[in-house]
Every structure is written in structure tokens, then in C-alpha cells.
Design a protein around this nucleic acid. Structure first.
Length: 820
DNA sequence: GATTAGGCTTCG
């Protein structure tokens, strides 16, 4: 195999080298990773050129409710602009109609779209924007148009406020001010100033009907978002505040993500733009256009980090005080607090909220999904086990096995099936209003008919009464932090029995390649959780390898300098050939007879003419070793004037070949673009940055010591050896999420195969390919892949302003497979 | 301009 592919593409500083190899601007850096983020240029370019390249225009007709449009902008001409009006909240809003001049079907209802601008953004652009202006909008929110059936426009509408981080760009050519006239054709950027908008919040006891307002409150009751019978998701939330009033809120959105992210009773919410109306002689709230919600953990003193999908939001010191005050008030009020129930404390006939981790799931039939979950505590009495074919269980069999004593089977019915199906193994959940129920009739189960204690069943019944539903919790929320502690202590408490199981599992799988971490005692972390957290962190993951790059394995071998920590490509044959030819052209291949005689003390020299037309002279200096001449495969030769082919042939016959030249007054090494030593067919390179080549005479002391290892040769010749390393990108997926981790193997070995050996051994290359095919079967369903365990650390890297999160596999021993 | 749901336990 001609693996010596590619020129040196980069020698970079240690902190940046990992980043640089993924930088597509590097000539040879295309390992197939994502483009780095590009900054906005301050230039006279058209608007589209000012966005980072991944920000792209989206046509009106392609807008959808459920998508995030952070990386998209729309472009249109203002067809109509309505005067601004004041909402009950005191903020302004105005409506305009945009027409997409480039629409494919200009007359269709998709070519015009209603657009609403809220809050301080109104003041910023109300006077600048004119009918006929061409505008570009980004960071908008897409909601359903309430008037599409009447006005015949787009079924969706755009909403812009500082809460979406919205930006409005307008082409200046239609701006009439003289100052702007000189900038004809250039875009003026209108974006929200840093000026704060004064929001007012109405105490719940002062709420009146018919107005749109903002409120703060503590969640007294809620239904997590669920699909309504109409077209939207619905969430009902009852909030209370110290005024002792309560407000029922009915919130709809086509995108469940835009509904408040409430995890439990006691959470504090801030709603902007809810409309108060009367229903059943009571006031209720419904979300108004521009609705947005912030949700906070209700624990006093907890971080004031709101849960929201908004990119930006206003949150002042007054807001901070309000949240903290509500937290304190609610915590003193027992009626708001609900006790958390652990599995170990469950009583028959309880309805309770269970915060847990999903271990496995299976579709039982059309009306039920089985979830196997645990919370780290053990239910002390017999548990009902849902009979299910193990093959239909989604989840890691090893985990299912080893945690079987700690997991409970939950059956999820009817309208919750969709939510259950979208769950991924490893996720953290709260199952709201879970029903603990003793087995109905023991007569159906003869085996337990004499058992005094009937089995406990867990059901999430159909419907949404009492807030029944499933909430997925992010890894960083406080309840999950507590849960994780519980899970960890359960694991360590049960280590004896679990350890036995683990060992058994290892025996069963020892015939397959496995990736074993050096940190078996650390629990595994779901990938989604890792993605949610900020680096630097270290984790142990258990995931499937769904892809790796580069696919051509020889491309994964690089040269690494342990001194300056640079990484470079292995020179390919063409490069070496060219470098060798360059040496002849410099005319440095004529052997100086003086040097010959001078150095002849420690080597014998032979010269002959090559059979090419240039009558090139080839010189070989045979290094003398002791009295008896050693066999060629154990001897060292210094060669001059050789071609690449001759270098190959000589290196196959002689143990050590050192290419040299005598262009200077003493025999010396060549440029480090070619190997300085070929030892047992392994081509050794030196670092151009860190080497200080010495005359070849420096080898003489080795004659006495008799140590001819590559490291010793490198040392006396002043060469900093480059190590062969594997650099690969592993895409790991554990069901909860997927991450790209860099496998960078400083120890040079990977599945017991050294990177240096793989360069010269076809059998090893095939072996490695087979291993990778087993770990990540080509053309197979990703689910067929192999579970791996590895340690991953996250870190920030990047150039200057653009820092990105990267992941690297570390401390992971990649064990040799027995039968591969 | 306003459908969904408008808290209030399944029945497996």
C-alpha cells in the first residue's frame, strides 16, 4: 500500500493543532469535519454576504412551524405597514405585510406574510421602515397566522422581539435622509439597541379582563405540553403569587418548545404577553401574539438561569429580585410544595411524580409502551414485570441486566405513546401522575397466588388529568443532579453483585473487540447530557460507533512531534522521490574523496553507477561492527545518491539505512523531508522545528555501545523523532444524542496495532479494517453497531473569537480482539 | 382575528 500520502499540511502550535487539522482552509486538513464559524464582515457587501456562511436565506414557502430558524433569514419588501399600537403591557407593537419578490409562485398565498414587531424593536425601526423597503429579518419566531383564512396570506406569521434576538436589516436606498443618500445601495443595520424596555408585571389580584399583560407567578399546577385535538401543543398552567390570587393559563403553540419549560410545581414563571379573558365566570389567560415564557427552578438561592428557547431575553436586577422573592414566598407556603416520592417510598394506589432515568423501552402493543426506569432506590416488595420479548427491548442489554433489581416497569398508554416513543435510552425524565397499583388479581398468576404480597404495577394512564405526562429533563437541572447522586450511590452500594454481572458480561463478549476504559468506576453519562454541559469536563460514555473518519485508514496515521506537539501528514512517495531528485540536481551526490578516506575508519565505502541515463553515482557506507561482519539484516548502512526505489530495496535488505549526503565538508543528514532512518522497514522522520542535525560522524560512539535503536540514533544525530499516531474522528451515539470525539492516540497503538507498523504491513491494515468494520459495520443500520465504552473529555478550542467545543477520547485502552 | 382546552385520575 502506498500509504505515504500527502505533503506536510500544517505545523501548528500545540493548543491549536487539533483544531487546525479540522480547518478546511488547511491544504490537507480535510478529514471531513464541519466548517468553522465565520465572522460577519464589516464590508459593503450585500446583506447575504455579511452573514456567516451557514446562515442562509429561507423562502417564505419553506417556513415551517416546528423548525428553529437561528441560521436562516427571510427577505421581502414591505407591502403594507400598519401604525404601531400599544399593548396592555405598555409596550408597542406593529404589523406589516412582507412580499417575497422572488417567490416562485408570486400570486400564491405563500408569497405574502404577516409580520409583527414588538417592544423596543418597534421604536428602533418604526420610523426607518417604509412601505416599499426591502428588508431582511433574522432570529424571528414563526407562529401560526390567526388571519390566514381571511387575508389569504401565508398560514404562518413572523414575530420579532428582543426575546428572539431578532434583527432587522433594511436596504438604505429607500431611506430618504440626505445623510444616507451617499450610502445608496448599502445595507443599514437596524438592531435592538441595548436600551432596556420597561416591562410592567401585574399582580394576579389586579388582573382585569380583555387586556394583554405580563405576569410573574409560581406554578401551582401544570400539564406538560401535549398535542391538543386541534393543531397545536397545549399546556395549562396555574400560577399563584403573594397576592393570594391565582390565574389559570391555557397556552398553545405549534412548537412545544416555545411553551414554558416547567418541570415541577413550585417553579417560578414569567410570562410576557398573555391575554386575559373570561371563561366560566372566571378570568383565564391565553397566550397572545409575541408570547414568551421564562421558567426558573423554585429553589431559593438556585442559579437564576431561566429555561427558555429564546436566544436573548431581558432580565434585569429587578427581575432577579422578583424571582428570588417568589421563591422564598412559595417555599414558606406548604400548599405549593409537593413532596418528591422515590421508588423505595411508593405506597399502593399512589399517584406520584417519578424523576428517573430511562434504561430501556419497548413497544408492547398499539396501546402501550413499556419503559424500564430507575431512580437509584429499590422498591422493597415484589414488582410486576411486563412480559416482553428481549429482542424488542431498546437499550443496552448489559445495563438492563445489571440494573434489573433496581428498575421498574412502567406501562405508558394511549396519548402518551408518542411522547414515550420519542424518548431515548439514557434520558432523565419526570413521569407525572404515575399510578402505583397492586396487581389486580393474583388468581391469574398461579405462581404468586400463595404469595402474601401482590406485585406492584406502574401505569401512566391515558388522558392529561392531573398533569399526566412525561417531561424530559436536561442533565444540568437540579433534580437531575440529585437523581444522578442517587444513581451513583446505588451503583457503588451494589458494586459487589453488579461487579459479578459485569465480569460475566465481559466473558460473554470477550470474543468481540471491545474498548475498555481505564475508569470503570465512573458511571456512564448519556451523550445528550454531555452536549448540554460546558467544557472542560470528563465523562465515561457507553455508545455505539455510528461513523468514523477518515474511512481510508491509512489517512488516519499522522506524524506527531512530542516536543513541539505539532502534527503533520506522513510524506508520500512522490514527495520523497522529489526530495531525493532535488538532491542530485543540486549536484551534491559527488562523493568527496577526502571525506571517504577520513571517515573510512568506521565504515567501508562502495560506489557504483546507477543504470539511469544520468549515470548517477550511488554510494553505500557499510558501518563496521566489531571484528566479525554482521548479517545485512543486522547491519547499518549510510547511503548517498539513491533513488526512492533503491531506498526501498536497500531498506528491505539492511536493518538500518541512513540516507546521507556529502554536499558539505562532512557526511551529513539530508533535509528532514525524507526519512533520516529506515529501521526494519520503518521509515523514521525528524521534526523540522525541533531537530538540530549533527554530522553523521556523531554515530561513532554507538559503535562502542552497540546500541543501534532508532531513539539512540536520533539522539546522537540531534534529530527529534516524530511518532506515528492515529487520529480519527469517532461519531458516537447512545440513543440520547450523538457526538464526534477525536481519537488521538499518543501511545501509538490502537487495538494493539502500532501506527508505525500499519504503514508497512498490509496484513495489519486488513486487520484494522476488519476491526473497524466490526465496530462500525459498513452500510449497516447504526443500531447494529457495537457498544463501546470510552472516556471522553470536552474542551474549547479554536482561533480567536470562534471557540468551539471539541471532544477527545482519553485513557481508553483499545483492547485487542481475539478472533479478528 | 380566536380551533385546540378551559386542571379534577384508568379501568390496560
Amino acid at each position: 500500500m502506498h500509504t505515504r500520502a500527502a505533503v506536510i499540511f500544517s505545523i501548528v502550535s500545540s493548543s491549536d493543532f487539533l483544531h487546525t487539522i479540522f480547518n478546511p482552509s488547511s491544504p490537507r486538513g480535510s478529514i471531513g469535519l464541519t466548517m468553522p464559524f465565520q465572522q460577519l464582515r464589516e464590508s459593503d457587501d450585500p446583506i447575504e454576504a455579511q452573514f456567516p456562511s451557514h446562515v442562509q436565506r429561507i423562502e417564505f414557502e419553506k417556513l415551517q412551524l416546528f423548525s428553529a430558524y437561528d441560521d436562516k433569514y427571510v427577505e421581502g419588501t414591505i407591502l403594507m405597514k400598519y401604525p404601531p399600537h400599544e399593548l396592555g403591557t405598555g409596550e408597542k407593537a406593529f404589523k406589516m405585510v412582507l412580499e417575497e419578490s422572488t417567490a416562485r409562485q408570486p400570486m400564491s398565498n405563500l408569497s405574502t406574510i404577516n409580520t409583527f414587531v414588538f417592544g423596543k424593536l418597534v421604536d428602533d425601526c418604526e420610523h426607518t421602515l417604509k412601505q416599499g423597503d426591502k428588508v431582511v429579518l433574522s432570529k424571528f419566531q414563526v407562529t401560526k397566522s390567526a388571519s390566514a383564512s381571511k387575508d389569504g396570506r401565508h398560514l404562518l406569521q413572523l414575530e420579532l422581539s428582543e426575546e428572539t434576538g431578532a434583527m432587522v436589516f433594511v436596504y438604505a436606498k429607500s431611506v430618504k435622509e440626505p445623510a444616507a443618500a451617499s450610502n445608496v445601495g448599502l445595507p443599514i443595520i437596524e438592531r435592538p439597541k441595548l436600551r432596556m424596555h420597561d416591562y410592567t408585571y401585574v399582580p394576579l389580584n389586579e388582573i382585569k379582563g380583555g387586556v394583554t399583560i405580563n405576569v410573574y407567578g409560581v406554578v401551582k399546577f401544570f400539564k406538560p405540553p401535549y398535542p391538543s385535538k386541534g393543531t397545536d401543543f397545549c399546556s395549562t398552567v396555574t400560577i399563584v403569587d403573594p397576592s393570594n390570587a391565582r390565574l389559570n393559563c391555557v397556552l398553545f403553540n405549534g412548537n412545544a418548545d416555545l411553551l414554558p419549560k416547567i418541570y415541577k410545581v413550585g417553579d417560578v414563571v414569567r410570562f410576557h404577553r398573555i391575554k386575559i379573558q373570561e371563561f366560566n365566570k372566571e378570568l383565564q389567560a391565553i397566550n397572545a401574539p409575541g408570547f414568551s415564557a421564562l421558567t426558573f427552578d423554585g429553589t431559593p438561592g438556585a442559579p437564576l438561569k431561566p429555561r427558555t428557547t429564546s436566544r436573548s431575553y431581558q432580565f434585569t436586577s429587578t427581575d432577579q429580585r422578583t424571582v428570588e422573592e417568589l421563591r422564598r414566598w412559595a417555599n414558606a407556603d406548604l400548599s405549593i410544595h409537593r413532596p418528591t416520592v422515590k421508588l423505595s417510598e411508593v405506597k399502593p394506589a399512589d399517584y406520584f411524580d417519578l424523576t428517573c432515568q430511562l434504561i430501556a423501552k419497548a413497544e408492547v402493543d398499539r396501546s402501550a409502551v413499556l419503559l424500564k426506569v430507575w431512580d437509584g432506590t429499590k422498591y422493597p416488595h415484589p414488582l410486576w414485570q411486563v412480559p416482553v420479548d428481549e429482542n424488542t427491548l431498546e437499550g443496552d442489554p448489559a445495563d438492563i441486566h445489571r440494573l434489573c433489581k433496581l428498575t421498574v416497569d412502567v406501562l405508558v398508554y394511549d396519548n402518551h405513546i408518542g411522547a414515550a416513543n420519542s424518548l431515548k435510552v439514557g434520558m432523565y425524565l419526570t413521569i407525572h401522575n404515575l399510578h402505583a397499583k397492586l396487581a389486580t388479581s393474583s388468581t391469574e398468576k398461579p405462581s404468586s397466588s400463595h404469595d402474601a404480597v401482590p406485585e406492584m404495577e406502574f401505569h401512566l394512564h391515558g388522558g392529561t388529568s392531573y398533569g399526566r405526562g412525561i417531561t424530559v429533563l436536561p442533565g444540568d437541572c437540579s433534580d437531575v443532579q440529585q437523581l444522578k447522586q442517587s444513581l451513583e450511590s446505588a451503583l457503588s452500594a451494589d458494586q459487589g453483585s453488579l461487579g459479578d454481572l459485569l465480569r460475566l458480561d465481559n466473558l460473554n463478549t470477550s470474543k468481540r473487540p471491545s474498548v475498555i476504559t481505564a475508569h470503570q468506576h465512573i458511571r456512564t453519562t448519556p451523550i445528550q447530557e454531555i452536549l448540554d454541559q460546558t467544557p472542560p469536563q470528563k465523562y465515561r460514555i457507553r455508545a455505539k460507533l455510528v461513523n468514523y473518519e477518515p474511512r481510508a485508514l491509512h489517512q488516519s496515521v499522522k506524524l506527531y512531534c512530542p516536543e513541539c506537539r505539532s502534527l503533520q501528514e506522513v510524506p508520500d512517495d512522490d514527495d520523497i522521490d522529489a526530495a531525493l531528485q532535488g538532491l542530485y540536481n543540486l549536484g551534491c551526490m559527488t562523493v568527496d574523496p577526502d571525506i571517504q578516506s577520513l571517515d573510512a575508519l568506521w565504515y567501508k565505502t562502495a560506489t557504483w553507477e546507477a543504470e539511469d541515463e544520468r549515470r548517477r553515482q550511488i554510494t553505500v557506507h557499510f558501518v563496521k561492527t566489531g571484528e566479525a561482519p554482521s548479517a545485512p539484516e543486522h547491519s547499518t548502512i549510510l547511503v548517498e545518491g539513491v533513488s526512492l526505489n533503491e531506498l526501498y530495496r536497500l531498506s528491505e535488505r539492511f536493518g538500518r539505512v541512513i540516507p546521507t549526503s556529502s554536499r558539505t565538508e562532512c557526511l551529513s543528514l539530508n533535509d528532514l523531508s525524507i526519512p533520516f532512518l529506515i529501521e526494519d522497514r520503518k521509515w523514521h522522520y525528524g521534526c523540522k522545528n525541533c531537530s538540530h542535525p549533527q554530522p553523521v560522524n556523531a554515530l561513532q560512539p554507538l559503535l562502542q555501545s552497540g546500541t543501534w535503536e532508532s531513539s539512540a540514533i536520533a539522539k546522537v544525530l540531534g534529530v527529534q523523532l516524530l511518532n506515528y499516531v492515529f487520529v480519527m474522528k469517532f461519531t458516537c451515539d447512545d440513543g440520547s444524542g450523538s457526538l464526534d470525539a477525536l481519537l488521538w492516540n499518543e501511545a501509538e497503538r490502537f487495538f494493539g496495532i502500532s501506527a508505525a507498523d500499519v504503514m508497512i504491513d498490509d496484513v495489519l491494515q486488513e486487520k484494522l479494517t476488519r476491526i473497524m468494520d466490526t465496530l462500525c459495520p459498513p452500510r449497516a443500520n447504526p443500531d447494529d453497531g457495537h457498544w463501546l465504552e470510552c472516556c471522553v473529555k470536552s474542551y474549547y478550542a479554536g482561533d480567536g473569537s470562534e471557540q468551539k467545543t471539541y471532544y477527545q477520547i482519553f485513557d481508553t485502552v483499545v483492547a485487542e480482539a481475539e478472533d479478528i
